[in-house]
Design a protein around this nucleic acid. Structure first.
Lengths: 157, 157
DNA sequence: GTCCGTGCAAAGGTTTTGCAACCAA
DNA sequence: TTGGTTGCAAAACCTTTGCACGGAC
């Protein structure tokens, strides 16, 4: 996996550094995370002797990894963009507006819908980066119903 | 239209002010806009003698209008949230990742898809706030194809 | 006249940028 | 050794907040 990173960097005359490896690993481990969350995880690893990574380095690494196509940026409902590894990318995000959970489902589920949109509007959906808002099963049963706009702070593991 | 705003405000003991009217009008006129874009439009009207509105007032008005249910907040691909009038709400956003255009299509188009997601994952999609990324008809024909991540700055009228 | 709303200015938090030292190749 | 990278600190950015004046009712 990490050899992949090394080659891709090398191919562009860029360098494989521990920070970049660690940022990529953190994104893979977290599933979905903002730059801040990635930095926090790396800070935590610092306690285990791995060494912290400066926030600005995290931002730079994420942008680079995005450009290299190893990581993708998605706007979930937080103001800050979230990142996820692209190997991990062929899925839709289901964002619960109530508890904040982020679930994933196979992109194939939207294939029929995407075909409709293409046929009727000429628009080709990128089903690998879909973020869909709504209410998850747990929250639907919890609060049986109607009201819309409450946002609980929460964590997506 | 604006009488609606007056009544809704009045019902809560709040006041109808020119700034609030103008912010709502700007959102309706723009279709989709960030707070900053709304402020910019109001600034432009200033030249026509309408008077500018302070940015902080724009932010407060947008939050209030959202709370009143007259305006909805959506995360498009910009870091800042976008707002649109709710009369205008029963649609999906089709966001072109290439030219930045925001198109709209009836929410009904996703009804079948939403039913699938609900049945298979217990997740109830909010089809009124869907932002879908992809590539619009114009860009698909322009650049016949493959590369993914270029973002042209652009305007959604 | 009362109280809500506005404008201004300052604070808040996140992301970006400049620069010298550092280290991967 | 060479030039890409890092860390630090300062800047830039958008958004929120406090407060006194002004205006809607």
């Amino acid at each position: 996996m990490s050899e992949d990173l090394g080659s891709v960097l090398h191919a562009r005359g860029l360098r494989l550094t521990p920070q970049r490896e660690r940022v990529l690993a953190a994104v893979r481990g977290l599933g979905h995370a903002t730059a801040e969350e990635v930095a926090a995880r790396l800070d935590a690893q610092d306690a285990s002797g791995a060494g912290a990574v400066n926030p600005s380095t995290v931002y730079r690494a994420l942008s680079l990894l995005e450009e290299l196509g190893l990581v993708a940026r998605t706007q979930l409902d937080r103001p800050s963009p979230s990142f996820h590894a692209v190997e991990h990318a062929d899925h839709l995000h289901l964002l619960c507006g109530s508890c904040g959970a982020v679930d994933e489902v196979p992109a194939g589920l939207a294939a029929g819908f995407a075909a409709d949109v293409l046929r009727e509007h000429g628009f080709r959906l990128d089903t690998r980066h879909l973020a869909l808002r709504g209410r998850c099963a747990a929250c639907r049963t919890d609060v049986a119903g109607p009201p819309a706009g409450d946002h609980h702070p929460s964590e997506a593991s």
